[in-house]
C-alpha cells in the first residue's frame, strides 16, 4: 500500500480566476494503480510529468477515484479513457441536472464521463479494495466521498474538498461549504476524526499534533508577468520553501 502525492493542493484565490489546483494522489495497492481525482485542465501537463516521475504513462492508471464532479476534479478524465472510474452515484445522478446556482458542477460533466467505464459508488461506506474504505462526506458537494486508507504506519484520510485546507482543521469550520453547510460541518468533523494523516482538497498533506498543523511537504510556483510590448517580465514566486532563491525567478 503506497500513497504518492502527485500534486499538492494550492490554497490560493485570485480576483480574476479560480486556481482550482486540487490535491492529486496515486494509490498503489492490490494490483491496482488508482488516481485520486484528476484536477483542472491547467495542471494537465504537470500531472503527466508527475506520473512520469513515478515511471507511469497515463495508460498505466487503471482506476480513478473521483471524489465529486466539480470542474477542478474532472477536467483531465479524458487522459484516461481506459480506466475504471469510481464515483458516487449521488454525484453522477445529480450531475444530469445541476442546480442553476451550482457553478462548481459543469452541466456537461456527464459528457466528460460518456463512454467511460464508470462504476457508481452507493450511498454507504464500504471497503473497495483491501485496506481502502470509502467515507461519505457530503456538504461541499451533493455526495462527495473520500477514502480512509490504512498504510501500515498511519491511518490516512483522503478527504478531498470536505477538508478544503488545513485551515478547516485549525478553525473547526469548513471554509468552502459549497452545497449544504450543515452537512459540510458534520463531514468535516467526521473526516478529522477518521484518522491521523490528512490529505485536504486544496492544501498540502498534514498531521495534527495537539491541534497544531504539521505539513509534510512544500510547494512552489513561479509566475512570469510580461510587461509588454517591450518584452520585460516580472517574476513572482509563491512558495512555502524558506530558502527560495530570488535569482531563479
Amino acid at each position: 500500500m503506497k500513497i504518492d502525492l502527485l500534486i499538492p493542493g494550492l490554497p490560493a484565490k485570485a480576483d480574476h480566476f479560480l486556481f482550482g489546483i486540487c490535491s492529486l494522489l496515486l494509490i498503489r495497492t492490490a494490483g491496482r494503480t488508482i488516481l485520486f481525482d484528476t484536477g483542472p485542465f491547467r495542471i494537465r501537463q504537470t500531472l503527466i510529468r508527475a506520473l512520469k516521475e513515478l515511471g507511469l504513462a497515463p495508460a498505466g492508471v487503471d482506476t480513478i477515484f473521483l471524489t465529486h464532479l466539480h470542474w477542478d476534479h474532472v477536467e483531465n478524465l479524458d487522459l484516461f479513457p481506459h480506466a475504471e472510474v469510481l464515483t458516487p452515484r449521488t454525484e453522477f445522478e445529480y450531475a444530469a441536472a445541476p442546480r442553476p446556482n451550482d457553478w462548481g458542477t459543469p452541466p456537461y460533466v456527464r459528457e466528460i464521463l460518456r463512454d467511460m467505464h464508470v462504476t457508481l459508488l452507493p450511498d454507504q461506506e464500504q471497503e473497495i479494495f483491501p485496506g481502502v474504505k470509502t467515507l461519505l462526506l457530503p456538504g461541499h458537494s451533493v455526495g462527495l466521498q473520500g477514502l480512509v486508507i490504512d498504510t501500515g504506519d498511519a491511518c490516512a484520510v483522503l478527504a478531498s474538498d470536505a477538508l478544503w485546507s488545513a485551515r478547516d482543521a485549525t478553525r473547526g469550520v469548513p471554509d468552502v461549504a459549497f452545497f449544504d453547510p450543515a452537512k459540510a460541518q458534520s463531514s468535516l468533523d467526521k473526516a478529522l476524526a477518521a484518522g491521523d494523516l490528512f490529505y485536504p482538497g486544496h492544501d498540502r498533506p498534514f498531521r495534527l499534533k495537539n491541534g497544531v498543523v504539521q505539513y509534510l511537504t512544500q510547494y512552489r510556483y513561479e509566475l512570469s508577468f510580461p510587461f509588454q510590448p517591450l518584452g520585460q517580465s516580472f517574476g513572482l514566486g509563491i512558495s512555502t520553501e524558506r530558502n527560495m532563491s530570488v535569482e531563479n525567478l
Binding site: H16, F19, I43, S224, F225, P226
Partner: peptide
C-alpha cells in the same frame, strides 16, 4: 469583461 494577460508559470497554465 476579462482582460487577458500573457502570464506564464512553471507548473500550471494560467489561461488568462
Amino acid at each position: 469583461l476579462f482582460a487577458g494577460l500573457p502570464v506564464s508559470s512553471d507548473n500550471f497554465l494560467p489561461g488568462i
